[in-house]
Design a protein around this nucleic acid. Structure first.
Lengths: 123, 123
DNA sequence: GGGCGGTTCTGCTACCAGCAGAAGCGGCAA
DNA sequence: TTGCCGCTTCTGCTGGTAGCAGAACCGCCC
């Protein structure tokens, strides 16, 4: 049940149609940890952070610094690139899964004129 | 004071085997902006942030919050998933490209020193 | 020279990362 | 029931830094 606490947002910031970075990151970190069968305390120790803080990161409540991300990823045995790919996949999933969630939010970012193709950035 | 801090850490700071999240993110944001032919001021205005701060984000000097990331991505017309994919690609690129960048310093400490800190040694 | 785009420096304030300590809670097994 | 385990959440604290404004400065090009 604690799946989505999006509507838990207080008045102020505009409700985001797509998940925030820290939320997507946390979700992926938790998934990775559980896949490894690790407990919070295991990863926290290896990463050198407190268990309650790791818990908050995984739940998307706190904004971890880049060094923290590296530490946790290292403790989980994944590298940044893999992590990002996984998160991107999740974000896509969530987005399509929420399409039947009424509310009238289709687009996410205003395509400023150009359908844009981020095209192939094979630079 | 010429502390060149390119992505090329020179002497002193810890040569992280892989780039930090904020550095990879900044690089990708800049690349995306330049592909669109936008100026800093354009994106900054659209995202609702100051131009000098956007400059620092793009150079990996500051750690933007999730809301900031969303705002800048939105101003660039890309969504989070695309951004992450692009960053992952860059990270992979850099890693293989940096193979001959030996370095051989120690590690830890961090860019802008935080004395005494439990922090993190990834991997 | 002068404008433009970008970088960087100096502040400054408010916010929050990150910790410790401890309590709460659901699940599971003895 | 009792107790342990793994996780969450609350309180409280401190140092760091996000993020801003203002301005100077650096290349570059007209």
């Amino acid at each position: 049940m604690a799946e989505i606490l999006d509507f838990n947002r207080k008045p102020g910031p505009a409700p985001r149609p797509e998940p925030l970075w820290r939320e997507a990151l946390g979700r992926k970190l938790r998934e990775t940890r559980e896949e490894r069968g690790d407990r919070l305390v295991d990863v926290a120790e290896r990463a050198g952070i407190s268990v309650q803080y790791l818990s908050e990161i995984e739940r998307g409540r706190k904004e971890p610094s880049s060094e923290m991300i590296a530490a946790v990823a290292g403790a989980l045995g994944v590298d940044l690139a893999d992590l990002l790919i996984g998160i991107a996949g999740q974000v896509r999933n969530l987005r399509s899964a929420s399409s039947f969630r009424a509310g009238g939010h289709f687009q996410t970012s205003r395509p400023t004129g150009r359908p844009s193709g981020p095209v192939a950035m094979a630079a």
